[in-house]
Design a protein around this nucleic acid. Sequence first.
DNA 1: CGCACTATGAAACTCATC
DNA 2: GATGAGTTTCATAGTGCG
Length: 600
Amino acid sequence: MDENVSGGDVSDVDWTTDDESEINLNPVTTIVGNEEACSSRSASRSKMFDHFVGMGFSDKLVSKAIEENGEEDSDSILNWLLTFSSLEDSPPQQLSTNFDPCSSDYNEIFPNDLSDMDSWSDDEIEDCLKPNGAPNGAANGVYRSEKHKMLLSLAASGSLTEREEKLLSLADMGYPLEEAEIALERCGPKALIGELSDFLCAAQMAREEDCYLPDDDLKPKHLLSGSSKSKKRKFLEMKKNVIEESIRLPNPMIGYGVPSMQLERVHRSLRDDARAPPYFYYENVALTPKGVWDTISRFLYDIEPEFVDSKFFSACARKRGYVHNLPIENRFPLIPLPPLTIQQAFPLSKRWWPRWDPRDKLNCIQTAIASAKLTERIRSALERVESEADPPESVQRYVMEQCRKWNLVWVGRNKVAPLEPDEVEMLLGFPKNHTRGGGISRTDRYKSLGNSFQVDTVAYHLSVLKDIYPNGVNVLSLFSGIGGAEVALHRLGIKLKNVVSIEKSKVNRDIVRSWWEQTNQTGMLIDFDDVQQFDDTRIEQIIGSIGGFDLVVGGSPCNNLAGSNRVSRDGLEGKESSLFYDYFRILGSVKSVMRNNRFA
DNA sequence: CGCACTATGAAACTCATC
DNA sequence: GATGAGTTTCATAGTGCG
């Protein structure tokens, strides 16, 4: 599969004449052009005017405000507008309902509205807008232009399919190709251009709303520093009121229940298109930047994510969100039940565990471990105090902080150590030595394990499939990693008929292949390396040969979402995490092919 | 070159308190 | 409800070593 078509030149952006239509229509490109061209003073009044009108205040009110306060002081204008509108007790129209992204001048309005913020002195509100202000330009631009180019060249040779024609039309209308593909999957192959365009409008408007999600509660200092805090707060609250309540994390984080804590009478209803086969199961980190789960949920048929912390299944925490259309009644856990505390999981550590370390659960297992140097520093800090006595509080604090941060356990007097890879395997529910040998380094083992499912948690959710598919399942496993879903199904005693596994990392594919052979599977394991090349043709081929899929499972990369990432926590549009859209694309395509082949 | 180690904070949450 | 302190987080880029 590696030798496939465009693998080599994906990174080469070829801005030939073929792409001119895209250059002209690309909103990101347009922003830059307009911003530079509009810097003259003559434009500033209309800019300021448009800006506040864009926020939803009426033309008349904004004219009056500018008249009263002058053109330069946006803060005063805003205060004036807020005061006036609150006196009238008629909140201004919201941006999201005021402008129409479908209108012909969408490309003009939308970028200007955002770029204007740069010249606006209200830092707080600017901050609120920025994270989503330039959603997917840099991250997906290369991919888009490559696809677009391909379509254009196909069009030139007159060999476009109906689907590709629609895609090209939408791209020519200025929609990112990737989103157009999603719209096509979501609306079905028969959808008319108008319907698709409506869908894309809705998605873009929804993203706009995300931009305005205020985080005032979380930035009190930030807001208090302003001179007109109450007005600003009021402004943000007004925005908040019309915006759908953002998804919040449950406490305790048990989703629809865990073996030790059952909710009474849980019931949920799913949309028809969400219920349609196959079953699917999508996973990612619970603590994402704001709005990410709203977006994921919106793309996955508006199913509300089930947030579960694996500390209810294991001795280590793992807070994750799962979007799925599985039944939620009659789940059962894997047997044997794994140890639920550190002391049960590591009985030998009890002897060395100090009284002043109160932990009984480990924190989330990540991809890196503490170095030997750090454990050495901890040892020497502890050895400075005389034996039998508790170390001073300051030392205790330091040691506890490091232990929590790096998930250290006690392995001797004054000795802490990071978990061994096989211990991590056990905590995550994998067989011992699952990731060992076969050319994988220690660092890679930690990395692969840190990126994996907690098997017991996932198995609990998937257990409902056992009665539904007594003869086994066909599984499409995206971003398989070290095969958490496969291991979970196997441990549940659900026969794996055909598993199509897509995983970029070769060492991970080798691990799954090796596990597959060692567990004497009678089914067939087919693996691919790149979700982006897993296109409709291939999906049709595979479904044609094995019959439909019963389950599409996967957790797309979290590295741009995870809190530990100090470098590129870019949200869902980040380089890796945007692969979520491929999960959606593939799921939609599978649904569509199965519908057409009457597997449904 | 592969591997191990190190330095690099902020976002978003929980919880106690007022 | 508002506030503030405290806690947790599927990581990345650069460096050095053998």
